[in-house]
Simulated assay, not measured.
Amino acid sequence: MSTLSGIKSSTILVLAATGKTGRRVTDLLGSAARPASRSSATRFDWSTPDTWEPALAGVTAAYVVPPDNPALLAEFVPLAVKAGVTRLVLLSMRGAPDDDPFEAAIKESGADWTILRPTWFMQNFDEDLFAAPVQHGELALPAGQGIHPFIDVRDIAEVAVAALTQPGHAGQTYDLSGPESLSFPEMLAMIVAATGDPVLYTDVEPEEFTASLRGFGYPDEVADLVTMLLVRIRTGAEAHLSDGVQRVLGRRPRTFADYLGSSSFA
C-alpha cells in the first residue's frame, strides 16, 4: 500500500482492534499495525493499566478508540507520548463540544493529533446496536421520521489510515458523514428490499427506549447518551452532511446501498 511506504512493521498501535473501525484500520495498515484489544495477541484493557505500557513499546503512532471514562484517556496519553508516540488519531463523534475532555486529552498531548468526528455507523444495522432488533423484525427507536447521514465505517478507517500515515493532517478535526441523509424507515425499506425479510419500524418515547437499553445491561450514562443522540436525529439536528471524507480521500463517501452490497444483508 503506497501510503505505508517507509513505515516499519508494528509501529502503529490500533486500539479496539476487534471493533468496527479498529479491525478495518488494522486490515488497511497490514504489517504496520499492532492490533490491541482485550482478546488480541497484544492485550490492551482500559481497566487494566498494566497492559498499556507493553502495548506502547516501540510504536510511533496510535489510533485511539477512547474508553467511557475520560480520566483513563488522560492517564494514557502522557504515557504514550513518553513511550515515543508522535502521532495520535482519535475516534470522537459528531457534535462533540469544543471542550470535550476526550478531545482535550489528545490536543494537549504535545504529539501531532487528528480528531475524527463521524456520524452514526451504517454497520450498526448488522454488527451492533440495531442488529438483533432488525434480525427479529422490529426496530423501536425514539428517532421519529428524522434523517441522518450514516457513514460506512470503511470510510472512517480509510480516513484514519491517511491521518496516521500521511502528512498534512496534524491539528485537523474532520467531520465525517455519508453522502445522503435518510430516515430509519427509508433505510429499513432498503434492507427489506435486499433481504426479503420484513422489518417494522416503531417510534417510541425516549424514556421507554432508555429503559430498554438499561434492561439490556447498558450503563446509565451510555443509555442516556444513545437516547439523546437519537432524539437529535428526531428533531432534525443531525440531518446535515459533512465533507471530511471528500477532503481527506478526494472522493464521495460510500452510500447506504454500497454498504448493503458488502454487508451480511447482501
Rank of each mutant, 00 (worst) to 15 (best):
V222T: 15
Q135H: 10
M1V: 11
S212Q: 15
G144W: 04
S92I: 10
S5L: 13
S39E: 08
A194I: 10
N124A: 12
N124I: 14
D99C: 11
V14N: 02
K107C: 09
D45N: 13
A193Y: 01
L90A: 11
H136G: 11
E138T: 15
T165V: 12
H148L: 11
E221D: 14
R154V: 09
I106Y: 01
E158L: 12
L230P: 00
A143I: 03
K8L: 05
F125C: 03
F102C: 03
P253R: 09
H148P: 03
A96G: 08
E127F: 12
V245A: 12
D126I: 09
R38K: 06
A83S: 15
M190I: 04
D50R: 13
G6P: 06
N124V: 14
G196D: 08
A104S: 11
L29V: 05
R247A: 12
V204F: 05
F265H: 11
V161H: 02
A55T: 01
I191W: 13
A211W: 01
D152I: 03
V64T: 11
R38F: 00
Y174I: 10
A32E: 12
R252F: 08
H240F: 08
L213S: 11
T195V: 13
P118L: 07
P179I: 03
R94E: 11
S37D: 01
S2I: 07
F44L: 12
T26D: 10
T210A: 14
E205H: 15
S39D: 13
A193F: 01
A131S: 04
D100A: 07
P49M: 06
L225Q: 12
I233K: 02
F209M: 05
G95C: 07
G30M: 03
N124D: 15
